[in-house]
Design a protein around this nucleic acid. Structure first.
Lengths: 338, 338
DNA sequence: GTGAAAGCGCTAACAG
DNA sequence: CTGTTAGCGCTTTCAC
């Protein structure tokens, strides 16, 4: 049972040639239905499976899709990638592919990893995450016409960057969050985000600003920038609330930032609480387990769907179709914090 | 550069035979140092990389290690596996292997996946997680003498179950947690765990009981069982505290349970708060991002080390060494909750 | 429709 | 120490 059963065994038992077996499996329409039927029965009976290494030598296709996992999982936000990865594993399996993992510390190292992989395991395609401005990886892969899809839009101005991608509309997410707060009566809504230059962060700020503009409100003085982190979020929230007694709500670019902001919101501090009591609403981004655990309202990304879409765009790319892309809408998960 | 460079190219440029190149790479000691040096230079110059598919056809080894990822990441506790996976990816890379992902819904489906994989990609070994009583997978792999390692000890009574494994000493973790509470002066310390039968859960309960016994305390009436979950933990904690006014601390089998328990501990409810004010200490297990976020004291598992150890046991198994195993000590991360 | 031959890139076995 | 031969299992010609 664990013995190696080759195409020759199937051919012998079915009373046909090896080639006919191969045809029955790979090019069914070229074989007579009854022959095909018999071959398939024998395949089933013997538990035959194509040896991918042998196939790969002839066709050059390995059935492998490579994806990078970061050396360290940074806790709160790492869960976003992990959910995506789980979804992608399933989607890939349905498309007859398997995921191959690799690590790399930066763009250059990752390109070195591409070279290693292409020479060794020969993955059929790559899935790239965390796209950014001046992404060397996409350029490298495009130059060599290697199939890939990115989860994350190309944050580049170059109009000739043409590759399939899937992304979640971050601006729509923060916009929905802000509109939710507006609908609840909030009028002075601040934003805590990352320093400009990170496409994702800028996009999320944009949605907040758009919602304010839509309500005819002035965003001046209501936006702050900080590296990601709960401590950072807490500091910035404290500063914001102390400096502006009219702020009643905070939209954050991540759950980490929101978590810190929520500390401030939930334990009023005299330092900023000089005015009448304010109940501060807080909304995060990513709907991580932490958000669920502490009752933080957050923007949820449809990661399973994103993974499935990545896979289908990839399948299409492997068939030679021109690249297309997809911007998925996130949705707000409302909890106690807002 | 992206052109396919084979061993023949290297041989031609270096002025030796194909076999010498192969030897220089795989059996360096059998080749004259100067020849070897020249070959390696040409390899570098041409950017040659062995084609694993071709090698696999000859040697039967693919350089792949297969590991299952669960279809759905269950949020809080999923992060444990994910951290392990990240660590394993790195450890595998250092040992010259890559991780291949697959999914399966249960033991039987997973065994079917084994068969698929072995016939197709031919992984050199498997890494199994979530071992349990009557684990069909280990039996199946042992029967076929396929190399594998489990992260999780064999929870079986069978003395002949002999395979390499790595596990974290859960009992030592809850014991340390309980001792920490004892040292802080707590005398009536309850345990919230899972229904008996899940090796991991029973083990964690054992550590708590052991610590109490060591302090000469009676555990009677202090242990509760419930499926995992924050809501479940909350309900059980409420019940425990209402029924026993002397309880001042709760040790939980998971961060999910602890999260729920902490809700009760932090917002005193008249229902159980009939006695004098009690500050209830809570300790969780796994040290997930949620624990860090909400200041929950928790038992931390050394997952990166566990992954590295799994890989080294696997390497040894692939070399034919007899199986050995390892029980790693966890440690307590003390935060505000205890 | 079906079968025979060739060869993908590599390494184990053997000969020099 | 180095070179030659053979063949892993499969699929792509090309005959039949």
């Amino acid at each position: 049972m664990a013995e190696k059963v080759t195409i020759a065994d199937v051919a012998r038992v079915a009373g046909v040639s090896r080639q006919t077996v191969s045809n029955a499996l790979n090019t069914p329409e070229v074989v007579r239905p009854e022959t095909r039927q018999r071959v398939l029965e024998v395949v089933e009976e013997l538990g035959y499976r194509v040896n991918l290494a042998a196939r790969q030598m002839r066709t050059g296709r390995s059935g492998l899709i490579a994806i990078r996992v970061d050396p360290v999982s940074d806790g709160i936000n790492g869960s976003v990638f992990d959910r995506f990865l789980h979804g992608l594993t399933e989607a890939a399996a349905e498309a007859g592919h398997r995921l191959l993992l690799y690590t790399a510390a930066d763009d250059h190292k990752e390109i070195a990893a591409f070279e290693d992989l292409l020479g060794a395991h020969e993955p059929d395609a790559f899935v790239l995450t965390s796209t950014h401005h001046k992404d060397l990886r996409t350029t490298w892969l495009l130059d060599r016409q290697l199939p890939f899809v990115t989860f994350g839009r190309p944050w580049s101005e170059l109009p000739d960057v043409r590759h399939p991608w899937v992304d979640v509309d971050g601006a729509a997410g923060t916009e929905a969050a802000t509109e939710h707060l507006l609908a609840a009566g909030h009028r002075r809504i601040a934003f805590i985000g990352w320093p400009p230059g990170s496409g994702v962060g800028d996009d999320r700020r944009l949605g907040w600003a758009r919602a304010l503009a839509g309500a005819g409100l002035d965003p001046t003085g209501l936006s702050r920038e900080t590296p990601d982190g709960a401590a950072e979020g807490e500091a910035v929230a404290r500063d914001l609330l102390a400096g502006d007694p009219d702020i009643t709500a905070l939209v954050c670019a991540s759950d980490s930032l929101a978590l810190g902001a929520l500390q401030v919101a939930r334990s009023p501090n005299p330092a900023w609480h000089s005015e009448a009591y304010r109940r501060i609403a807080v909304i995060g981004f990513d709907d991580t387990p932490v958000a669920k655990a502490i009752g933080l309202t957050s923007v949820h990304q449809p990661l399973t769907e994103a993974a499935a879409r990545c896979m289908s765009l990839l399948s299409r790319a492997l068939e030679g179709s021109p690249p297309s892309h997809l911007l998925l809408p996130p949705f707000l998960v409302v909890r106690q914090s807002a």
